[in-house]
Design a protein around this nucleic acid. Structure first.
Lengths: 138, 138
DNA sequence: TATCACTTTAGAATTATTCTAATGTATTGA
DNA sequence: TCAATACATTAGAATAATTCTAAAGTGATA
């Protein structure tokens, strides 16, 4: 009976990002990158992991989300003071922010056209343009 | 010798907003609304008040900033998790966010043109569109 | 398989903000 | 002008999100 070993795309993804494919990172990456684009907070992902019987500390969830962000696998978004979301969609796009319940949804990138931008102030360069369309549910 | 009483525009501004012109509110409003547009955090304003020998608690600074925001005298902006700024410019405009030191600067509104927006999702309406141009200093 | 650098972890620490309930003060009407 | 009262302020505790610390665990390498 051979030792079970998986060489999933997730493991390659981690290796390519220079991150050791540990049990925790693999599990978290599988939750984040399986399927649709997601907007998760550290707390949400930790709860989800716990529910799936993946034992991982909240500190590791934070570490992992930041490492993934640094590696370009995630994008961090701050919309309201005191909570940040991590978006699995790292392509150029923007967001709806639902003020009532605080959740985010992607806006199709072709639906927002920023047709004119200022030049970056001297000595700096533009690293990203975030457009957040705040909506209020009736 | 008459009791000193001031009927400054600040006091009218507070009254019009339905807020009693207390010593604390008057002092904070004078700091916020005198002169140029500002982007301040509660902590910054509290330090500034203390430096100016205005005795006011941090809780009151928070209360006041939120009351001013509700009254439409300020606009709250969250750019990074865990710190929010209050902008004295409540007209339609956007921001540069300097990633290095975390400060904000206004972008002239004519310098950003959002020429196309999606419609709000059914059952909701757009309350505001925030454009944050994140810049990185070399 | 031993070694070592990298990871994870529990729990404490930090930071920003909000809450609580006691005290203070602007406003109102007599 | 002076209570009475409703609204404000406050210190300090409480909460929430996140980061830190240092000890124990684990993947990679030779």
């Amino acid at each position: 009976m051979p030792t079970e070993k998986r060489y999933t795309p997730i493991i390659s993804k981690l290796r390519e990002a220079g991150l050791r494919p540990t049990r925790q990172r693999i599990a978290l990456a599988e939750m984040m990158f399986r399927g649709d684009d997601r907007h998760v907070s550290a707390e949400m992902l930790h709860k989800e992991a716990t529910a799936a019987r993946v034992s991982v500390s909240l500190a590791t969830v934070y570490n992992t989300l930041h490492q993934f962000t640094q590696a370009g696998l995630l994008r961090e978004i701050a919309v309201e003071a005191g909570r940040s979301y991590f978006d699995t969609n790292t392509t150029d796009h923007h967001h709806f922010y639902f003020e009532n319940d605080g959740h985010l949804e992607d806006v199709l990138s072709e639906d927002v056209v920023v047709s004119s931008l200022p030049s970056a102030p001297p000595g700096s360069r533009i690293s990203r343009v975030d457009v957040v369309i705040r909506v209020c549910e009736d």
